[in-house]
């Protein structure tokens, strides 16, 4: 268990390539003991590769990794008793029951028979899976599989838990329940390293977040500090019910708006929506009047609070749609 004063994980100049592809490019970060640290980035950004490097499933080309006071660069498997890993796909044994899976995972960490049975029962109850304890893992639903996989990851009470996309591909209710469990684990003292492409999830759960794009960390700070510059901005979302032009006309509308309101920045996130940003408070009436004169009926105009998504877009330079597309591809989970 890492001492309170030193970081649970310290990574310096970490690099990893697969052939010509540079998956991780000189990454530096630390995770404090007891912290819930988020790693946010689109698919293929290098999140899973970094987890593999930290947990000894892959070897770095360069850089150093320390887990507590253990130098994992020199001894990649030396810290494994401290780590719990929940991979992005549920990878328990399909032919074993939920109970047997947990007992087997506990045995891998040297827990005696009685202890592993007690611990398995405890976790099945905590994750609301007691009723399915005797059922084979292959017959579990996706949400149940994710819950059991997390239970397996903490069966040996690890000091540090790696959660790779824990809520991907599961329904909204299961995702919410999982987030509660993750928050509870962290409150109980487990250091958590969470990778996700759900911005809201990271914002809700994590104290600090690193943005990763193409193997590089492009921003890393507390959620409050990341949001701070955005608080000085003003945003408005205008929802139109009728009259919004189709694609070629949209560009034209945007140009006209820019010419009429040079202090405002306009984007069109969805066909019926207009997003407005400015450095000063936005006067709604002239804008609505302009739109209505252009034959567009405004249904609603609401003030936008700064979100981590705004920060992500600003820091990474990626479009808002990138993370949205990831969500659609991989199931809702939100």
């Amino acid at each position: 268990m890492p001492a309170e004063s030193q970081p649970a994980i310290a990574v310096s100049r970490l690099s990893k390539s697969f052939g010509a592809v540079r998956a991780v490019a000189g990454v530096d970060f630390t995770v404090g003991a007891g912290e819930l640290f988020g790693f946010l980035g689109p698919n293929g950004a290098g999140k899973t590769t970094i987890i593999n490097l930290l947990t000894g499933l892959a070897r770095p080309d360069a850089g150093t990794i320390r887990v507590g006071d253990i130098d994992c660069t020199a001894r990649p498997r030396a810290a494994q008793h401290l780590l719990g890993v929940v991979p992005d796909e549920s990878n328990l044994y399909p032919e074993l029951s939920g109970f047997d899976n947990l007992c087997f995972c506990a045995a891998l960490y040297g827990l005696g028979k009685k202890e592993r049975q007690t611990r398995a029962e405890e976790l099945l109850a905590a994750f609301e899976l007691s009723g399915a304890a005797a059922r084979k893992f292959a017959g579990y639903s996706k949400g149940m599989k994710r819950r059991l996989t997390i239970a397996a990851g903490i069966i040996h009470r690890p000091a540090i838990l790696f959660l790779d996309e824990p809520t991907t591909g599961i329904d909204v209710a299961s995702a919410r329940r999982l987030r509660q469990l993750i928050a509870q684990l962290n409150q109980d003292g487990t250091t958590i390293f969470l990778t996700t492409h759900y911005i809201e999830e990271a914002e809700r759960l994590c104290r600090r977040i690193a943005f990763i794009v193409e193997g590089r960390i492009v921003g890393c700070d507390t959620v409050a500090n990341l949001l701070e510059p955005e608080r000085e901005k003003y945003g408005l979302l205008v929802v139109c019910s009728e009259g919004m032009p189709a694609q070629p006309g949209l560009r034209n509308l945007q140009d006209k708006l820019a010419a009429a309101f040079p202090d405002l920045a306009f984007t069109i996130p969805a066909p019926e929506q207009l997003r407005v940003e400015a450095a000063a408070p936005i006067r709604v009436a002239p804008l609505v009047r302009f739109l209505e004169e252009a034959g567009i009926e405004v249904a609603e105009a609401r003030r936008l609070r700064p979100t981590l998504e705004d920060v992500f877009v600003k820091i990474t330079g990626l479009g808002r749609e990138i993370m949205g597309r990831e969500k659609e591809k991989r199931g809702n989970g939100g």
Binding site: T55, G56, L57, R77, Q80, H81, L83, V85, P87, N91, L92, C105, L108, Y109, G110, A152
Partner: peptide, 8 residues
């Protein structure tokens, strides 16, 4: 991978 992650 579970086996490779075990402290053995």
């Amino acid at each position: 991978e579970r086996l490779l992650l075990a402290p053995i």
